[in-house]
Structure formats: C-alpha cells, structure tokens
Measured scan of single mutants.
Amino acid sequence: TETAWISLVTALHLVLGLSAVLGLLLLRWQF
C-alpha cells in the first residue's frame, strides 16, 4: 500500500538526516 511506502521512505530520510548530523558533530569533535 502507499501509506506503508510513505512511512518507510520518511523513516529512511530521518535516519539519513540523523546520521549526517551525527557525522558532522563527530567531525567537529575530532578537529
């Protein structure tokens, strides 16, 4: 169904966004 796909895509986007923010924070901490 479409709702399942939409929720799955939004979850993936949230995970990608969180990982990107965490990566930037880690880079700032290291340097």
Rank of each mutant, 00 (worst) to 15 (best):
T1P: 00
E2Q: 09
E2G: 07
E2D: 05
E2H: 15
E2C: 14
E2N: 12
T3K: 07
T3C: 06
T3S: 04
T3Y: 08
T3L: 11
T3E: 13
T3N: 03
A4D: 09
A4L: 14
A4F: 10
A4I: 09
W5M: 03
W5Y: 03
W5G: 01
W5N: 11
W5V: 14
W5R: 09
I6Y: 09
I6T: 09
I6R: 08
I6S: 02
I6W: 15
I6Q: 13
S7R: 14
S7Y: 06
S7N: 14
S7H: 11
S7M: 02
S7E: 09
S7C: 00
S7Q: 14
S7K: 11
S7G: 12
S7P: 11
L8C: 05
L8S: 06
L8A: 15
L8Y: 07
V9H: 11
V9R: 11
V9W: 04
T10S: 02
T10N: 02
T10I: 07
T10E: 11
T10C: 14
T10V: 13
T10L: 12
T10D: 08
A11F: 13
A11Q: 02
A11H: 11
A11S: 07
A11W: 10
A11L: 08
L12T: 10
L12Q: 04
L12H: 13
L12D: 13
L12Y: 14
H13T: 14
H13D: 03
H13M: 15
H13C: 03
H13R: 05
H13L: 14
H13I: 15
H13A: 09
H13N: 05
L14M: 01
L14K: 03
L14E: 06
L14I: 01
L14Q: 10
L14C: 15
L14G: 12
L14R: 06
V15R: 03
V15E: 01
V15D: 02
V15M: 01
V15I: 10
V15G: 01
V15L: 01
V15P: 14
L16E: 05
L16M: 01
L16C: 00
L16W: 06
L16Q: 02
L16D: 04
L16K: 03
L16N: 05
L16P: 05
L16G: 05
L16T: 01
G17K: 09
G17I: 04
G17E: 09
G17S: 03
G17H: 14
G17C: 02
L18I: 01
L18K: 14
L18C: 09
L18G: 12
L18S: 13
L18H: 03
L18Q: 10
L18Y: 03
L18F: 03
S19Y: 10
S19N: 00
S19D: 00
A20G: 06
A20N: 05
A20V: 01
A20H: 14
V21A: 10
V21D: 04
V21G: 04
V21Q: 10
V21H: 11
V21K: 15
V21L: 04
V21E: 10
L22Q: 00
L22F: 07
L22N: 10
L22R: 05
L22H: 10
G23I: 08
G23F: 03
G23N: 03
G23R: 04
G23Y: 12
G23D: 05
G23M: 15
G23P: 15
L24C: 09
L24F: 04
L24N: 13
L24V: 04
L24R: 03
L24W: 15
L24D: 09
L24S: 14
L25R: 03
L25W: 12
L25Q: 03
L25H: 03
L26I: 14
L26P: 10
L26C: 14
L27F: 04
L27G: 07
L27K: 09
L27I: 08
L27H: 05
L27D: 12
R28C: 10
R28S: 07
R28K: 01
R28N: 08
R28Q: 13
R28V: 11
W29S: 00
W29R: 00
W29T: 00
W29G: 02
W29C: 01
Q30K: 02
Q30P: 13
Q30G: 15
Q30V: 13
Q30E: 09
F31I: 00
F31S: 00
F31V: 00
F31L: 00
